[in-house]
Structure formats: C-alpha cells, structure tokens
C-alpha cells in the first residue's frame, strides 16, 4: 500500500514536470493521452493496481487516485484553453441581402372561397354531394316543382342543348338525385358550377358557382333553417353581422325566405352605396322549407318528414366578402389578381 502511495506521489510530480515543458496543443494532447487514456493511460494503470490492495485500505487509496485524476483533468483543461487555436475572423457577408425566393402557386379565389363555405358546413356534419352539369329538364325544373311553361322559369334563364337537355341553372338537381337514392335523415351541401343565359356584366355571368344545401329529417322546422343559416353567416362573415329573413318565392320551397345581411361596406348609411344601393341590406341566400311536392316527387312522405333547403352564389358572396367591384374579374384569370389570393 505504501508503495502505491509513493508511486502516486511520484507520478504526480512527473506530471507537473512534464506539464511545465508543454508549449503547444500537440504536446499537451500527448500528456493528456499519457495520463488519461482509458486503456493505456498511467492513471488507468494505477487503478489496475488497486485490486492488490487490502479491501479495508482500498477507499483511502481510491480517493487518492481519484484526486490525482481530477487534478490531471483540471490542469489539462486549463492549459487546453490557453493553447486553443485563435478564433478565425469570418469574412463579412451581407446578411441583409434578400432570402431565396420560395414560390408557391395561388388558388383561384372562387374554389378557395367555396372551400371556406364547405368547411363551415362540414363542421355541422353535412356531407358534400355532387352531380352532372348537363341535366335534364326534369331534374332541373320538373322535380323541383316548376310547372312546364311557367313564368317562374324566366328567373332561371336557361342554356339549352335540346328541348329536354340543358346546363343546370342551379345545383338543386343534385338534391333530387340524392333524395331519390337515400332516405332521411339527409344533410348535404352541393357545390358546383351552374349556368345561365346571361351576358357577362359586372354583376352577371353565364357561368358561376353555387353552394346549395338540404336538410331533411323528422321535425325539421323553419326555426332550424334560421338557426343553421345564422350560424353559417356568422362563421363566414363575423359574429356580430346583422341578418334579416324576408319572405320570398321559390317553386321548390314553401315557405320561402330570402336572407339578407347588412351591408358591411356602408353599414346602411350611404344613400348611393355601390354595393347595397343605399338599402343597407344585401341579398345573400335563398332558402325555405322544402316544398311538399318536391318531397313527394322523390317518394318522401311530407306528412312525416320535413326539411329546409338553401343556396348561395359563391362568386356573388366572394365579390362582397373581398369587395371586388366586378364579377368578370374572376374569369379574366389575370395573374396579378389571382396571385393576391396566395396570401389568403
């Protein structure tokens, strides 16, 4: 044991001597390896000898060795800092130069806005159903309770392919197709392109997008129609928007209601507001309780089930939401217009 103590002392001394001669990083590294190398280092060697020491004396010697090891480590570390390579001075880079451009394409505002509308209804548990753009007179008019040759058809100016085949004037035919196949409860929206015989002007287009919706179930009331559409309009615009339900006429609903929202451009205060024309209200949705005849046409018993339907023009609503003055802008596809919506 005494031998070992002496050896530790000697090694400690020789370490100090060696350290005194160190001049650079490399010779310091050599000393570090000589003493601290895990396999062949001097300290490891001393630890090896510990097993020959009597067990009761081991703690004392062990402490001595550890002390020595800590001492070596500290000293080496201190010198390492001293001999560390001087910091390189980096060449000046102009970090104010613009970053690399990341390009991402822009969505067209109409599909974008349509998706916003869809998402609100999806949250309320609606499904999305879709159907053909070329329709028959029956699905577009007949099944929806438009008598043949009735002037009500004039409000849906139609592009015809033959007497019986036409471009759908609304997405309501999809509702008929769904009700033919599926029994209530039904909760769907039908987004899509619709067509009218209208020459393009700032507020009319021969093709535009609609989202229509339908709920049919037991005990559905006009109060539910109001609740659903209020929720929708508040989600789409803002929580405090003023909403008005006003009697109207559609062949496929009875009672029917037009839904107006307050003009957010002038707040109803400007006599010659370009958006609301001074009335303070903007028509945004058509709606109503599904006409009993429509339910009969698809073999749903109107005495048992009731429902409501609604529809809105996506373009018209987007025009109002983004305050775009002319509907034709949507179909010019000017990239200076469209690219703005990459930020939306």
């Amino acid at each position: 044991m005494e031998n070992l103590k002496i050896e530790i002392q000697n090694k400690r001394k020789s370490f100090e001597d060696a350290l005194a001669k160190v001049k650079d990083r490399h010779s310091l590294q050599d000393i570090r390896n000589e003493y601290l190398s895990r396999q062949r280092g001097i300290i490891t060697g001393i630890f090896e000898q510990l097993k020959h020491v009597k067990p009761e004396e081991r703690p004392e010697i062990g402490n001595l060795i550890n002390d020595f090891k800590n001492h070596v480590q500290e000293r080496v570390l201190a010198l390492q800092e001293k001999f560390a390579a001087p910091k390189k001075v980096l060449e000046k880079v102009d970090l104010t130069l613009p970053g690399e451009k990341k390009y991402w394409g822009a969505p067209h505002p109409i599909p974008l806005f349509q998706q916003e509308i869809e998402n609100i209804f999806l949250r309320m548990g609606f499904s999305i159903a879709d159907g053909p753009e070329i329709e028959t007179d029956y699905y577009n008019f007949g099944a929806l309770n438009f008598p043949p040759h009735h002037p009500a058809r004039d409000d849906w100016d139609t592009l015809y392919i033959t007497d019986d085949v036409l471009l759908r004037t609304h997405t309501s035919p999809v509702q008929i197709r769904v009700m033919e196949k599926k029994k209530p409860p039904i909760r769907i929206i039908n987004p899509g392109k619709v067509y009218r015989k209208e020459a393009p002007d700032p507020t009319h287009l021969p093709m535009f997008f609609q989202v229509e919706g339908l709920v049919v179930d037991l005990g559905i009331t006009f109060a539910h129609l109001k609740g659903t559409l209020e929720y929708f309009l508040k989600a789409l615009f803002h929580e405090k928007i003023k909403i008005r339900f006003r009697p109207s006429f559609f062949p496929f609903t009875e009672p029917s209601a037009e839904v107006d929202i307050e003009c957010t451009v002038c707040g109803g205060k400007s006599e010659d507001c370009r958006v609301c024309g001074g009335g303070g209200w903007i028509e945004i949705l058509g709606s109503g309780m599904v006409d009993p005849q429509v339910l009969k046409n698809v073999n749903i018993d109107p005495e048992k089930y009731s429902g409501f339907a609604f529809g809105l023009g996506v373009d018209r609503t987007a025009m109002f939401a983004y305050q775009i003055p002319d509907m034709r802008y949507f179909y010019e596809n000017d990239l200076r217009f469209i690219r703005q919506f990459s930020l939306k």
Binding site: W104, P107, P206, M207, F330, I338, R339, S342
Partner: peptide, 10 residues
C-alpha cells in the same frame, strides 16, 4: 408553383 385559374365551360 402553379397558379390556379377557372375558365368558362364554353
């Protein structure tokens, strides 16, 4: 990097 457009069906 493609921008989306919508054209009339005519």
């Amino acid at each position: 990097g493609f921008d989306e457009v919508v054209n009339f069906s005519f």
